[in-house]
Simulated scan of single mutants.
Amino acid sequence: MILRLFCIMLILFSLAGCVSGKSRSAIKPGAMISLPQAKNDIIDYHESGEYYKDVNVLAKSIARRVKAAINGKVRYPAVVMSVEDVLLSTYNARRKQGFSDNSAARKDLYSHIILSRLPAIEPSVALFEFLLSRNVPVFIISHRGEAVRIPVMENLSKAGFSGWKSLYMMPPNYPADLNYNEEVRRGLQKLGFNIIATVGAVPDDVAGEFTGKAVLYPNYIYSSRK
């Protein structure tokens, strides 16, 4: 299921021009499907419950890793989690815009963020509560800027996420050649925390060092953040 949907999203991006890039590979004729079918398959994946089953499997794998760290008496264990499509879902907002990434779609998504309207991803709520019950601090990273810190905090609270250790927002004019997520993890490591797992929705979220168990939630709505 995951591999099939990954292929579907590659087709969707190629046909709709949702994601920019220096070059695009040709799609083999046998793999070609229609754009409406690709969108329908994404919707079916989410609304059939398969998406949540896959996320639940990943969330439980993180819980097992944390249990093992605690039983192994790892000092100062911690977990790092991204906001969008890890804790809060952008699916409804993106579906409304046909999963496109044009300026209108980005503005609409931003309005959901400003109004703190993004719903929780339920398996992440259960994982979050488990971590807090074991006194494992959760550090949250958002790729959004400081201008939306308060709405993001309110959204997290409304969705059932409270008690996290710190929320890191993207600094202004951050160098393009640095991975902010990795730099945050590097700082936590220097403070003495042992990161047991890092949970993201796009590869940059879990790229680089100090990830512990690197976990990518299934995400077929976009391949990179803008």
Rank of each mutant, 00 (worst) to 15 (best):
R65I: 01
A69Q: 01
A59M: 01
L109P: 06
R134C: 09
V55S: 00
A59Q: 04
L132E: 12
A104D: 14
L115R: 15
E129T: 12
A105Q: 13
R65C: 03
L87I: 07
S111G: 04
V55M: 03
A69C: 04
S142K: 03
H143G: 06
D41M: 12
G72H: 06
L118N: 10
S100W: 01
S157N: 12
S48H: 02
K60A: 08
S20P: 00
K96L: 07
P29T: 08
Y91I: 03
A59S: 09
S82N: 15
P77C: 09
F99A: 03
K73H: 14
V138F: 03
G17V: 07
I140Q: 08
C18G: 14
K67H: 11
T90N: 15
L132R: 15
L15D: 06
K158R: 15
I114H: 11
I114K: 15
L127T: 09
S111W: 07
H46C: 06
N92G: 04
L115Q: 15
R117G: 14
R24L: 11
I113H: 09
L127C: 07
I42E: 00
E50G: 00
H143C: 05
L115W: 07
G30Q: 08
K158G: 05
S89I: 11
S34Y: 10
P36W: 09
S48E: 06
P137E: 06
